[in-house]
Design a protein around this nucleic acid. Structure first.
Lengths: 179, 179
DNA sequence: CGTGGAGTTGAATACGATCAACACCGGTGG
DNA sequence: CCACCGGTGTTGATCGTATTCAACTCCACG
């Protein structure tokens, strides 16, 4: 969080604003995208495939940065939707703030470490998707984000795991019967 | 490539070396890991799951940087294997070179842009794995890496796509019959 | 009360995995 | 030169896991 302030020249309570649960901050296809730093609350980012099905890309609870790197990078339209899952206190960071090249060395250092962490998370996610069964992915999710299941409806967890809500329900039933 | 030289203080023909096809540059479990910049040739990185099955994480042809960010970041053991798929001319970059924090502003700029591109690639990969069928993923692979299929045996492409070689063979058969 | 969204459960289905047999090379060595 | 071999890819039969579709329960909320 301190990193974020340094990175984007924010003072501690600059520019933060409350967004209501259900607010859609960004839609796929929007020309430009912003970054959102989550001071409080919970966001999801997701895509919608050609069959109209939603696939959750990531969750962003307190202290996380929500971004759509692909569109940022190539200066293209957004590919992800952002939506508030709870009333959320967010700092909205403009594209100009995040992509200008006159940052200080310190700011770049923070930027790099932030990106490194993001790459690590994504790498782990890909390995999971390729090598683990739905049940294993769910167990891994519980270990990694122990606080999130209480705050999320199951169908969103299923979407994050890449399975249907029914499949997750059956996995949970099976896990209960096992112990 | 120029970026790489600036980033790691390399002069144009520093430290490059030929590694034979089949050489394993890094094993999962190794304590420390290096980065490899591919001047010529082709590398794969992969994990091996508990059933002994190999899953290809990414390919690195000419101009790409092969890295195991997760282990670099947390200073942990490597989770990925690196292997040469062709005789390859590589620049080996030590962990010290890549993680020290006394880089110049210009170097951080390059580091950030390199990481941004990587995040974009991984983001696309995850969306693919979650929302597309095996056939769609294969078609997307052909579009994205048109030159790689000629240089790779099918079983490695299948592994990258997250399916078995038999499944890929059937998809190809089906696509031939369709046109 | 009703109504609609969330979760559960079951039956039928589909997609890809697994297993096995076989064809097709490209060496290697007799 | 041929016989043999291992690695690669194809094809078919069967199996398993997750999807799809449908019916039902359970609440939270009007």
């Amino acid at each position: 969080m301190n990193n974020i302030n340094i990175l984007f020249n924010l003072n501690t309570d600059s520019a933060s604003k409350i967004y209501k649960k259900g607010t859609i901050l960004q839609r796929a296809g929007d020309p430009s995208s912003h970054l959102y730093y989550v001071k409080k609350g919970l966001l999801k980012s997701y895509t919608i495939d050609k069959k109209g099905k939603e696939h959750i890309f990531m969750f962003a609870p307190e202290g996380w940065l929500m971004s759509d790197i692909e569109s940022q990078e190539f200066n293209k339209e957004a590919v992800l939707f952002f939506e508030c899952l709870e009333d959320s206190d967010l700092i909205k960071i403009s594209k100009e703030q995040s992509t200008r090249d006159d940052l200080s060395k310190e700011q770049y250092l923070h930027m790099s470490s932030l990106l490194l962490r993001r790459v690590g998370v994504l790498q782990r996610r890909i390995i999971m998707l390729m090598s683990a069964s739905a049940k294993e992915r769910y167990e891994h999710f519980l270990e990694t984000y122990p606080e999130l299941p209480n705050r999320l409806p199951q169908r969103l967890i299923a979407s994050y795991l890449g399975i249907t809500p029914e499949a997750l329900s059956k996995i949970r039933g099976e896990m209960l019967r096992e112990k």
